[in-house]
Design a protein around this nucleic acid. Structure first.
Length: 470
RNA sequence: GUUCCCAUCGUCUAGCGGUUAGGACGCGGCCCUCUCAAGGCUGAAACAGGGGUUCAAUUCCCCUUGGGAGCACCA
């Protein structure tokens, strides 16, 4: 086949659900390899299952890809639109004697499987129409087209990540190419499309490994060139079991809503199954430079949210303040009902960002910890803050107020005043600072207190502090 | 059941015959400190089991065990 010098990769999800973490990683690896080699990355929507494919799912997949920052080259290909070409190939196979018509009915086939199962035999098509004279066909009856697969020898998959995997041909049955309604099956469609799209590398989930020898047989029946295959180990949930809705089989956009950054997701997913020595923090630009197929691991991995959090914290800290502030604002505006921030609130958020981002693992956490900056007035105390403001503490707070009020209300001056006041009364700074923090922010922990006092300004700060001083 | 894949700390992993088995997350301790983080130092923590091959196996081979995936006129 016309083997272009540059690799051509593809991501081929079926639009029957969201783009989840496993699909996202498959897409990422394909994308990275294409970008690393200067090749092409195509997107093909495998919607041959008309019953289960939905436009919503297509939109969700495209949206997920965009959010992940995985851009594809050229327009996306819809597989169902190519059905005529798939049928053409099936007809060619039929004409060449490499496929045949099978008149077995669905009931007949399920009865066959029942029997095989009962007899403890492997369940596969028994080839009942393989060598039968077409003359015997019930006239006008619907038929499926099956591949006349090799029934001896073996098919070897030279897998890029797993190495050579051998399958004995006598255990591969004659799969359906065209359903009795004339529609092509996935098995036929992938092969034809990969060929027509000039795909050089098929990098997909390991759940497809067992399909590969069958696809290889179609390819050889057509006399086409084989693409290189690489099967990625699957991702399991935190408990080692299959990914489920509960833990990880979430749409990638759910990760956005949980406050993770796309860069975090790319780095995390990359490290799930691929490594470069001891390196952990691998920004995308570096990943493109380093990515290779040889370093893909063979074993399945599990999701680890703790590590995801840690990585996200890293990338949050590495993100410029103005971008982060804009993200935070966008997040708040996406709330229901949307929270629209005043100019003052935005300015505060931006000024406090260096301190805020230092202590947030997710955007959600960042926003929650900053509410005292974008809402005004006396605070409601959370449980921990209440503990910091028993009557004695309120007395201390009241006693400290005049000293603070007398300063020029800058962070250094406020801190100096608080220290002097504490020393004069034989108190530690913390004993004075904690009640102040609780009254000012409503929380027991916050960015540096004196910075926050300065940021909120004298008037707003005193309103909050006086409310808990007596 | 059957076919195929996988197997190093709890988790993600480095290792590609000879290492005090390394790193990261998480966990414990210490330092820093107005809180929480961040940061620094530090501790505990792994080669699933059994046979081979070899002067030497975490590393190569086989078996067992344990996980996982496929076995549709789904993709």
């Amino acid at each position: 086949m016309t083997q272009t010098q540059k690799p051509v990769l593809r991501f081929a999800p079926s639009p029957t659900g969201m783009l989840h973490i496993g699909g996202a990683r498959t897409a990422l690896f394909n994308w990275l390899y294409a970008r690393h080699t200067g090749g092409t990355f195509l997107l093909r929507i495998e919607d041959t299952d008309r019953e289960r494919s939905t436009p919503q799912a297509v939109a969700a997949i495209l949206g997920g890809m965009r959010w992940m920052g995985l851009d594809w080259d050229g327009p996306e290909v819809f597989q169902a639109a190519r059905a005529a070409r798939h049928r053409e190939v099936a007809d060619a196979l039929l004409a060449a004697g490499r496929a045949y018509r099978c008149y077995a009915t669905a009931e007949e086939l399920s009865a066959m499987r029942e029997e095989q199962k009962k007899a403890g035999k492997p369940m596969r098509y028994d080839g009942r129409w393989r060598n039968r004279d077409p003359e015997e066909a019930p006239p006008g009856a619907p038929f499926a087209v099956r591949l006349k697969a090799d029934d001896s020898g073996e098919t070897i998959v030279h897998d890029l990540v797993l190495g050579d995997v051998r399958f004995a041909n006598d255990q591969l049955d004659d799969m359906v190419l065209l359903r009795s309604d004339g529609s092509p099956t996935y098995m036929l469609a992938v092969v034809v499309d990969d060929h027509d799209m000039d795909i050089s590398h098929v990098i997909r989930g390991a759940d497809h490994l067992n399909n590969t020898p069958r696809q290889l047989q179609i390819i050889s029946a057509m006399g086409w060139a084989k693409p290189a295959y690489g099967h990625l180990p699957l991702i399991n949930g935190p408990d080692g079991a299959k990914l489920s809705k509960r833990h990880g089989a979430l749409a990638v956009e759910a990760y956005r809503d949980m406050g993770y950054l796309p860069e975090t997701m790319r780095n995390y997913l990359l490290r799930l199954g691929w490594s470069h020595g001891d390196d952990e923090i691998i920004p995308t630009a570096q990943a493109i430079e380093w990515f290779n197929l040889e370093s893909i691991g063979k074993s399945a991995a599990r999701m680890d949210y703790k590590k995801l959090d840690n990585l996200n914290g890293h990338y949050i800290r590495a993100t410029p303040d103005d971008i982060l502030a804009a993200e935070a604002v966008a997040f708040l505006e996406r709330e229901n009902p949307p929270r629209i921030l005043s100019t003052t609130a935005r300015a505060r958020l931006l000024s406090a960002m260096p301190s805020l981002k230092e202590r947030a693992k997710t955007l959600v956490e960042l926003i929650q910890g900053a509410d005292f900056l974008y809402t005004d007035g006396v605070r409601d105390l959370d449980a921990a803050a209440q503990k910091l403001l028993p009557p004695e503490a309120r007395g201390l707070l009241a006693a400290a107020l005049p000293a603070l009020a007398a300063t020029d209300w800058s962070a250094p001056a406020l801190e100096a005043a608080a220290r002097t006041h504490a020393e004069a009364h034989g108190l530690k700074l913390g004993q004075v600072a904690q009640p102040l923090r609780a009254a000012l922010t409503g929380k027991a922990s916050s960015p540096p207190l004196f910075e926050m006092l300065a940021l909120l300004g004298r008037e707003e700060s005193l309103i909050r502090l006086r409310a808990y001083a007596d």
